[in-house]
Simulated assay, not measured.
Amino acid sequence: MIRIGLVGVGKIAHDQHIPALAGDKRFQLVAAASRSLPDLGGIPVFYDIDEMLAKGPELDAVALCTPPQARRETALAALRAGKHVFLEKPPGATVSEVAELAAVAREHGVVLFTSWHSRFAAGVPQAKAWLASRHVRKLTIEWREDVRRWHPGQTWIWQAGGMGVFDPAINALSILTEIMPAEVFVTDAKLQVPENVQSPIAGHVDMTTLGGMAITADLDFLQTGPQTWDITAWTEDGVLKLSLGGAELTIDGTAVEVGENREYPGLYDRFATLIAEGRSEVDVRPLTLVADAFMVGTREVVEAFIE
């Protein structure tokens, strides 16, 4: 039994982490830390991680669901206390701080897991296997969703380090870096930033491989109606399409049976395995692509965002 504490009890914790932990017999949620001090049905809740570590029950691991801007210090406290750490995506506000956390995890002999939940979408493993032996000629990403629906009141997402539209779009990049047989590099980006915030609300990113394959990503945080989370790859053997964030897979328009979509249960299964093996899993490739898009991207100031 892995005794785990949850830090940051917001929407993603309630919607995904708590149910996933309840469904995995290897974990026992024994404490939480959140400034809102929510009622978790008898589970002790502390104001912050320092209070949880000092006054709470004994822990083996900590899952961090705080905004990325606050992640570094919280993760360092857990790692230095000898706890295995699960990082909600994105794993940090910068690429270098994740490298720092990995070094601290090694120093203290504990596991660090940079979780990318979209990689555990039902269609992703089969898409990766199908593309592995094929030449991908072109790939497009269309990631368009309604920020008011999925991130209500989450002002941190618009602040420096919050990533704006890249908070959901990094899910697409995590799938891309998982399924592509070759490494991917950013070549250009165009970012639209509302005049009253720090992070983009829409954008276009051009990428490539060493072989020169064209990859494009069109991102939008203002799409109403049906939401679009699609990745399409053209090969010599047909067109592969992942839809609904990777939950559905088609090849040349024919649906492929992929089974139940179990993203967060899959994450905690991986975390339990890593703990059992004493092995960290730290992958910053999706975050690096976002950082590169910010570095090379041109910025267009657009009208203010009002929730």
Results as ranks from 00 to 15, higher is better:
93 A>F: 03
93 A>Q: 12
93 A>S: 13
94 T>F: 09
95 V>W: 06
95 V>L: 13
96 S>F: 08
96 S>I: 10
97 E>Y: 00
97 E>V: 00
98 V>L: 03
99 A>F: 13
102 A>N: 14
102 A>G: 14
102 A>C: 10
102 A>Q: 15
103 A>G: 14
104 V>P: 07
104 V>Y: 06
105 A>Q: 12
107 E>Y: 05
108 H>C: 05
108 H>T: 11
110 V>D: 03
112 L>V: 06
113 F>Q: 01
114 T>M: 04
114 T>A: 04
115 S>R: 04
115 S>W: 06
116 W>E: 07
117 H>T: 11
118 S>I: 00
118 S>A: 13
118 S>N: 07
121 A>Y: 02
121 A>H: 03
122 A>H: 02
122 A>W: 02
123 G>A: 06
123 G>C: 06
123 G>S: 03
124 V>T: 00
124 V>R: 02
125 P>L: 07
125 P>H: 07
125 P>C: 10
125 P>W: 08
125 P>T: 09
126 Q>M: 09
126 Q>G: 03
126 Q>V: 05
127 A>R: 01
128 K>N: 04
128 K>S: 10
128 K>R: 15
129 A>C: 08
130 W>E: 05
130 W>V: 04
131 L>M: 12
133 S>Q: 15
133 S>M: 09
135 H>T: 15
136 V>T: 15
137 R>I: 10
137 R>V: 10
137 R>H: 13
139 L>P: 13
140 T>C: 11
141 I>L: 08
142 E>I: 11
142 E>Q: 14
143 W>H: 14
143 W>A: 12
143 W>N: 12
144 R>W: 12
145 E>V: 11
146 D>C: 10
147 V>A: 09
148 R>S: 15
149 R>K: 11
149 R>S: 12
149 R>C: 05
149 R>V: 13
150 W>E: 06
151 H>C: 10
153 G>T: 07
153 G>L: 10
154 Q>Y: 08
155 T>N: 10
155 T>Q: 11
155 T>P: 00
156 W>N: 06
156 W>S: 10
157 I>Y: 00
158 W>E: 02
159 Q>H: 08
160 A>G: 02
160 A>T: 07
160 A>M: 03
161 G>R: 01
161 G>F: 03
162 G>I: 07
162 G>K: 04
163 M>N: 10
164 G>K: 05
165 V>G: 00
166 F>P: 00
167 D>N: 13
168 P>M: 03
168 P>V: 05
170 I>G: 01
171 N>I: 05
172 A>V: 09
173 L>Y: 14
173 L>C: 11
173 L>P: 07
174 S>D: 05
174 S>N: 08
174 S>Y: 04
175 I>P: 01
175 I>K: 00
175 I>H: 00
175 I>C: 03
176 L>F: 03
177 T>L: 07
178 E>Y: 04
178 E>T: 14
179 I>F: 01
179 I>P: 02
179 I>H: 01
180 M>L: 05
181 P>H: 02
181 P>T: 02
182 A>D: 12
182 A>N: 08
182 A>C: 07
186 V>W: 06
186 V>K: 04
186 V>M: 09
186 V>I: 10
188 D>Y: 09
188 D>A: 15
